[in-house]
Amino acid sequence: MISIAEHQPKTESRQLLWTPSELTDLPDLEWTWEHWLPKGEVVLLAAKQGSGKSTLTYQISQAVADGEQLPDGSYADRGNVLYFDLEASPEAAGKRFRELGVKSESVHCCFLDGLPEGASRLEFFLFLVKNGQYDLAVIDSYRGLRVGDEMRADQTRETLDQLVAVAHEFSTTILIVHHLNKQSSSKDELDRVSGSSDLTARPRIVWLMNREGRERTLKVAKSNLGPEPEPIKFEMEDGRLIPIEQPNAVSAIEDACSFLQSMLANGPVPAQQATPAAIKHGISKRTLERAKRLMRVNSERRSDGWVWTR
């Protein structure tokens, strides 16, 4: 088996012990997609075969690569994407990308026939993330990694620990596609996810995607990082998932713009007052930043500190 470890760049180890003052000075959590894809974390998407999970991840990859609209109506910050496809061939992926109109040079796809002979699939994925400066890395699918028996907690935990470590170290969001095929009498819907319970315990966020006829529903079934967003419903049209019901992303931006216009009507406002006031009003930091760009609000440094002005 080829070892890739010797080719990996050496990086500084993460701090082991922290004081409360050091922790409070850390920046707030950033998002690739607010409430759905946290930066530097691992997220699991589980769905039954034929639900459209790969189509969904292709569309999300396109949105991140091009800075386009995400399924909830918000817009992604433009970034680099790695799509580690262990199920489709390059020809099949090319057909799907043509159907979706994806042409971005910021999406890098890797397929089984392109892996070095004898290489560990997991090791090669980690190698690509460490050397590629990716904002989003998709594994489609977990089963394709062939990292042992997914029913064994020790093997699953070891794999996820490696993925979590590289996500943290390189600030890459790792989205794992997996299968939802177990029948369970449990009231906890996470018990339907195939494999060891560690597959849902280790990721910070878990998505479930269900299909009823033409309609698909995507929901956050677990989040350790904040409130769970409203589920998103889709219909499949011409090989693309089209949202049926858009949550209030547009109205949230309009509300934030109106708030900024009112707040700045009488002149510049200190930044240390503006942000807390917006958060108290119910505006997220990501929405606030988008509204600032739309309203052309500038941050200026003055003798008494930073201010916002138009």
Rank of each mutant, 00 (worst) to 15 (best):
D72W: 00
L163C: 08
N224C: 14
T309E: 12
V43F: 00
T19I: 08
I4M: 11
S299T: 15
F259H: 00
D161G: 05
G144F: 02
Q272E: 14
V129M: 00
Q155D: 10
M151S: 13
R301G: 13
T217E: 09
A252G: 04
R293T: 10
Q272C: 13
R78I: 00
S196K: 07
L199W: 00
S54T: 02
R310A: 14
K103A: 10
R301T: 13
N131K: 04
R143K: 13
K48S: 11
V42K: 00
G213M: 05
V193S: 00
G94S: 15
A46P: 00
G267Y: 07
K130E: 15
W308I: 03
S104I: 12
V147R: 10
W33T: 00
L115A: 08
A119L: 04
A249P: 08
D188V: 14
P243C: 01
A93P: 10
S106G: 13
N266Y: 15
D188L: 11
S299P: 13
F259V: 04
S262A: 08
E215G: 15
I242D: 02
R216I: 01
L145E: 02
I176K: 05
R301W: 09
A271H: 10
G239V: 04
K130T: 10
C109S: 13
N181S: 09
F97S: 15
L180P: 05
E123N: 15
A291R: 03
M209S: 09
G114A: 08
Y142K: 02
M236C: 15
K285L: 13
H168A: 13
G213S: 11
A47W: 01
K103C: 08
P90I: 06
P229L: 05
P229W: 01
H7R: 14
I283S: 00
V220I: 04
G282A: 10
K182C: 04
E189H: 14
A265L: 12
Q59K: 02
E12C: 07
A92N: 10
S21Y: 14
V297Q: 01
T55G: 09
R96N: 07
F125R: 05
S21K: 15
A137I: 01
I283H: 00
T19G: 07
K103P: 00
M236Q: 15
T159R: 03
Y58G: 05
I279Q: 14
L82M: 04
D188W: 11
S3F: 10
W207D: 04
R152P: 06
A249F: 06
L16H: 08
